[in-house]
């Protein structure tokens, strides 16, 4: 068993007093592992990955990322965020900055990198997602698929050990989903730890080491993609799969 980079132990989270969104989550993610998380909406899958970089805080249990336990300690949160990149459903690019400025902002202000170095690294990442020619444009001048690829490049500029994807293709036109999935597939082949909330089952089959199915704040089932799709154990999983694969 390779060393774990993320461990959830009995993690619980509530929104307000009544909505129990994460229930007794136990999960260990190995270094370099690629995990796809799926489940119906409201099942807590986004919340789960947003706890990893403390966009959401959990109230019970322990969550360790790269050896650092996430608590209220601001320094610990800072250290974790340096190791974790994130890509959002709505891209969340900064519309008032050019593509290049979007990418160089964090390296220059967080890592205190000189401007020239930050730009060089940014251009490398833009080439990696095949969009270098758009560097001087503003995000809203690009298509959805291009914007999402810029968002991926922006996260990669901080050379994270872990990448989180929160439904990265859900806001895209069908024609653009593939260009984003291609970039993600390529990334998956390069040894970075990936957690991806998605309903792209083809992507899950092609790149995931493990598929996790969540419902009502719990992990219902986790398995290799092969076993998960061909031989689901729980009835809830079967029901879910029949709905998303049935059409």
């Amino acid at each position: 068993m390779p060393e774990a980079i993320i461990t959830f132990e009995k993690v619980n989270k509530w929104y307000g007093n009544n909505f129990h969104v994460l229930r007794d989550i136990d999960l260990s993610v190995a270094k370099g592992e690629r995990i796809v998380i799926c489940g119906p909406s409201g099942s807590g899958k986004s919340t789960l990955i947003r706890c990893i970089n403390r966009l959401e805080e959990h109230q019970q249990g322990t969550l360790k990322v790269d050896g650092v336990e996430l608590t209220d300690d601001v320094k610990a949160i800072e250290r974790v965020r340096k190791q974790v990149g994130m890509v959002f459903q709505q891209f969340n690019l900064f519309p008032h900055l050019t593509v290049l400025e979007n990418l160089t902002l964090a390296p220059m202000w967080v890592s205190k990198m000189p401007k020239a170095d930050a730009e060089e690294r940014a251009m490398q990442q833009l080439q990696r997602v095949r969009i270098a020619e758009q560097a001087e444009k503003y995000p809203l001048q690009l298509s959805g698929g291009q914007q999402q690829r810029v968002a991926i490049a922006r996260a990669l500029c901080l050379t994270p050990k872990i990448m989180l994807f929160d439904e990265p293709t859900s806001a895209l036109d069908p024609e653009m989903i593939k260009e984003v999935l291609d970039v993600m597939t390529e990334l998956a082949g390069q040894g970075i730890t990936m957690l991806c909330v998605t309903h792209e089952m083809g992507f899950a089959k092609a790149v995931a080491d493990r598929v996790i199915f969540m419902d009502q704040g719990q992990i219902v089932e986790e398995n290799t993609p092969h076993e998960f799709f061909d031989n689901p154990k729980s009835d809830r999983t079967k029901d879910f799969l029949s709905k998303i694969l049935g059409h």
Partner: peptide, 14 residues
């Protein structure tokens, strides 16, 4: 300003 802007900034460690 959409909440996502603050979240993106947080994620980048600003």
């Amino acid at each position: 300003i959409p909440k996502g802007q603050q979240e993106a900034a947080d994620t980048l460690g600003l």
